[in-house]
Design a protein around this nucleic acid. Sequence first.
DNA 1: CCATCGTATTCCCATAATGGCATGCGTCAA
DNA 2: TTGACGCATGCCATTATGGGAATACGATGG
Lengths: 117, 117
Amino acid sequence: MAVMARAATTSDAFNAIAEPQRRDILGLLRAGEWPVTDLAQELGMSQPQASKHLRVLREVGLVRVRGVGKQRRYSLDADGLRPVHEWVGGFEQFWNESFDRLNSYVQDLKQTRQQEE
Amino acid sequence: MAVMARAATTSDAFNAIAEPQRRDILGLLRAGEWPVTDLAQELGMSQPQASKHLRVLREVGLVRVRGVGKQRRYSLDADGLRPVHEWVGGFEQFWNESFDRLNSYVQDLKQTRQQEE
DNA sequence: CCATCGTATTCCCATAATGGCATGCGTCAA
DNA sequence: TTGACGCATGCCATTATGGGAATACGATGG
């Protein structure tokens, strides 16, 4: 039986964006289409590395490619980030928790003072 | 010099939550504190596996532990998810894009019809 | 058809992750 | 002190990663 190792980077968006350089790529792509070489240079990585990262992003559906002459222009396909945003969003109330508690404490203080005045 | 492989799961929240079972653990912890064994049973994983996942989550600061008798109770510390939410949130306008385009197209149609009427 | 430019792919390597199993360790009750 | 219980760790085998360097591939221009 196959011993399972870490999930493939191409298994889903969660794994794909775990790599910082891939997040950088996605960030750049918000500005529009990019040919591989320009992208690589802009981010200070080798062309092969850029191509490899782009392949992962393509396989999980986070980017699209379009051939323009000899170039391949990559663009963002952010839909795949939505599930990630939703999953993480499910925890929003928990990181606001301490703030909320502080907030209601401040409200209590205000009320108390008004009653005292 | 050290050849770089995939980033450690403990390097940040992005890597830590790439693993589905760790996301499941975090999900459960929204309900409150859990002793390791219960957690493992609830999620159908072995106790050692649960402990290992919890260690990763602890190292990136997504969970806290508290000793209660012989037990160790884990609880959520969601603050670390905030950067993830913010990063992904930076793409929100892009996954709404196609919808927005459709929407403005519909608006145009309406206006056109009103002008025709 | 051939040379060239822009990319993708392949190979090699050191690192590390996950799951199963066995075992070590700390705390509490007799 | 001795057991027992609850967890954490150690070790193994298997798999896959990201980086570097070399190379293969596809489209375009002569």
